[in-house]
Write a protein that binds this DNA or RNA. Sequence first.
DNA 1: CTGTTAGCGCATTCAG
DNA 2: CTGAATGCGCTAACAG
Lengths: 375, 375
Amino acid sequence: MDRLPTIEDVARAAQVSRQTVSNVLNTPAIVKPETRKRVEVAIRKLAYRPHASARRLRMRKSSTIAIRLDPMTNGISGALLDRFLHALTEQADARGIRILLFTAADPAAEIEQIRKLRAGADVDAFVLTATFHGDPRTEWLVEHDVPFVTFGRPWGVNDMNNPKHLWVDVDGFAGMREATLHLIDAGSSRIGFVGWPSLSGTGDDRRRGWQAAVEERLFPGDGDLAALNLSVEDLLEDARDAVVALLESDERIDGLVCASDTLALGAMIAAASVGRSDLPIIGFDNSPVGQAIGLSSVDQALDEVARGALELLLGETGGDLVRRDAAAAGDTRHRLITPHLVIRQPLRLLAPDAVSIPTATKNAVGNHRNGKESQ
Amino acid sequence: MDRLPTIEDVARAAQVSRQTVSNVLNTPAIVKPETRKRVEVAIRKLAYRPHASARRLRMRKSSTIAIRLDPMTNGISGALLDRFLHALTEQADARGIRILLFTAADPAAEIEQIRKLRAGADVDAFVLTATFHGDPRTEWLVEHDVPFVTFGRPWGVNDMNNPKHLWVDVDGFAGMREATLHLIDAGSSRIGFVGWPSLSGTGDDRRRGWQAAVEERLFPGDGDLAALNLSVEDLLEDARDAVVALLESDERIDGLVCASDTLALGAMIAAASVGRSDLPIIGFDNSPVGQAIGLSSVDQALDEVARGALELLLGETGGDLVRRDAAAAGDTRHRLITPHLVIRQPLRLLAPDAVSIPTATKNAVGNHRNGKESQ
DNA sequence: CTGTTAGCGCATTCAG
DNA sequence: CTGAATGCGCTAACAG
């Protein structure tokens, strides 16, 4: 295979002009069926595919979307981007769009990368993850009229229904509320929340979900929620220590919902270490680690997030990547995905009342290999 | 910004012919310094960048490497590909190479994707991960003369020093041996190995590392290694159960090395549950989860793997992506990266002799936030 | 050192 | 419906 076949080679093989081949490829409807067949056979025979760069040059669009690969998201929930990427790539492929990666150490570097990628006509649009309050990236992109969508809503910046840019996000409120209601339905009556310090829009959203469920079903008036409301950094150890303190100070607690699987794992360890391995705990992210350890968790439905992102960018129809004018867009310019709860049989970290697991019970403990997943 | 500036715009702005601009970009040496300066100013002023597609078309190469995003690698060590991707993207960027993603459900689908990507001149070369014995992909790629490098050596297929294709791999033998020696130096004298069932080249390689260290330093003659040699699937629960059994049947065991962090985590849980939270355990992969929990582990040095892959593909010099002829290549056609051990203070899953952690010791337990990392 | 000429492979005008 | 032109933006040959 010395040289890739060109459209001309196909034309010669099919005994037509090269324009006819182009038509078969791009406007098959206007070609006489029998000629089309002949051309298609030639295409298959030569294993011809249009030269991507040539086509992109001609079409004046790259049909490529770029996304930044974070240096390292937090430990346990880190694989989140990984899974989102997979979903995005898969859906993009179906639309004839390619996903290009880039890296950057900080927002300024990311803007610079975006600038380069744009100036080189390498990329048509961008997907931004891990947006935050007052994010300089979104400002710059809007300013420079670069098509993009964020995974994460623009917290507090502007009207959610008519924001300055496209966004997709997961409804943390709904997810955490569902998790909490699940525990309540299962009999819990005093449920704590382990979340991040305020000012994290995402974290506050999830906290409100817990709060809503608890106020709705457990403390119709207004309980002492503050005592059940933990705020720690997203670290296993911090969560563990805080939960140990909580459980020691309030023995009536019979359930815990957490803003992340990292926190939930810390909580599990804490519960086990104070002899409460039976304590129901629900995390958020449905991380692989959580799966491995049988942690119930709220799944972010990354497939839907990816689909939403592409729909907003490309329109629901095809892969046209023509950004619709903000003003002209009749339908919504965002998607709020409802996550769903995944319930698992927890892998007990430790038998509740023995230092050593008696041989007799070993099998019972080890029997949760295939934790059923609901919904 | 209606239309991107072209080389012609720059030429006009700098009062030179457009070829001169091209020269400044590609062969700066042959342009008179003062003219060059003038052109460079114009380039900066217009924020000009060569149109990637046009350049690729002209150069007859895409300067793009594609890599498949796995559906989902195993739970805990899953982020491995994630980190490798990051390293690869970063290094590629430095060489002016872009990384494109694609997905495929199985090897056949992957081959089909590769075929398409190649036929469309979208991609110059590929990086293959998770290769296995008798992998159809490598055969096909060699057959069709597609430039590629694998992350993973061709186990048993052909001469490692003159293989049919380029490869990079991590020296599991050396890594596991170092881990084992570390435990021995720290005083362990009876060290078990938790690995995968045989037939996994990678797993066997790691097992041999443990074996070598143990035979070398602990059982010069030949001990009853079989009793210390566990084989389980890469699942937390399986590892836990097997290690519980091992520790109960042999109380002299004072160290454990594991073929993955998943296994190591299972081992940690097992150790804690039989009152041996003090048991030194070392994993493999240096996964984020392991970090979070203070697990010592063998780090795969993915930066070096990525660099090696690109060097093999592009040559050490630049980003030329001209595959050197197999026969003509004087230097090696592979890289074997030596991993390094990362030692951490383990986060105790549980106080060794108390059901509840006394308040007084809580700080001590929680104080390992920034585990020092050696080497 | 600088300017001119000729494609890379494709899609999109226009004529027939 | 099909065939013959034009140029997307660039670089590599040349000639000056």
